[in-house]
Design a protein around this nucleic acid. Structure first.
Length: 239
DNA sequence: CCATTAAACACCC
DNA sequence: GGGTGTTTAATGG
């Protein structure tokens, strides 16, 4: 497993345009002044993280707010026993880590790239400055935190109420949450095994559920990925 | 019984 | 080589 430091880096010009892509789909940038925007662009670091590498690590001091320009990460925690639990996926256009920054604690989870990803790291100082200077930014964080809270409440609820098919459906719907992943496209490249980790199911069971969802016309199965055809249908599946 | 899963295997990209 | 589909044997409600 490679660490962040050893990951490949693209050219500065590449990085700048990739960062601009991310900022373009992020809601909180819309009301920023040119000056604010320029400061963010100059202080935020962009890094290519290869598949399997850490986007950020549990226990490290929280120096950055992290945005996914392109790619997919899984948020996990490893218990002392070695058991790994996957909390949620983070995908294109999404930002995370604000909770740890606001609480000023160490990071409580690992995020591992499930495929080659482009990641933006906004320094804590920049984040705090935005927090102090932009009402829009504060509103965005409030909406984001609320959305995530809703997602986690939903996870508990669906875990207890729904069968495996419903859990898979809900898991996929969560990945495609337009608030938390505004830049995501209908086709997502993720293995069925990883969906299993997200939903807490075995690979075969996920495969079975996906076929059910496929037959219901909610998704289309592809090799190494899934196309979402009906997000609302996924959300409501099993109710 | 029935559903689920781990393990093993054979395809296919 | 990794992702996928399938079979088989074991497990547990």
């Amino acid at each position: 497993m490679r660490l962040i430091n050893s990951t490949a880096r693209s050219t500065p010009a590449d990085q700048a345009s990739k960062l601009q892509e991310l900022l373009a789909v992020s809601v909180w940038t819309r009301s920023l002044t040119l000056e604010q925007r320029r400061r963010i662009e100059s202080e935020t670091i962009v890094r290519s993280v290869p598949k399997g590498a850490y986007i950020c690590r549990k226990g490290e001091r929280v120096e950055y707010w992290v945005g996914v320009i392109e790619g997919l990460g899984k948020m996990t925690n490893t218990a002392a026993s070695g058991k790994v639990t996957t909390f949620t996926g983070v995908t294109t256009g999404g930002w995370f880590g604000e909770g740890s920054i606001l609480k000023d604690t160490h990071r409580r989870y690992d995020v591992i790239a499930l495929r080659d990803s482009e990641i933006a790291y906004m320094p804590r100082a920049t984040f705090m400055w935005l927090l102090d200077s932009s009402i829009e930014f504060n509103r965005f964080l409030l909406v984001q935190l609320n959305e995530r809270l809703g997602q986690f409440i939903g996870m508990v609820e669906y875990d207890r109420l729904l069968g495996p098919d419903g859990r898979v459906a809900h898991c996929l719907a969560a990945l495609f949450n337009p608030t938390l992943a505004p830049g995501i496209r209908p086709l997502i490249k993720i293995s069925q095994e990883e969906i299993g980790h997200l939903a807490g199911l075995s690979r075969q069971r996920v495969n079975h559920s996906l076929k059910v969802l496929d037959e219901a016309g909610l998704v289309r199965l592809e090799y190494g990925g899934i196309t979402v055809l009906n997000l609302e249908g996924l959300k409501k599946f099993g109710e």
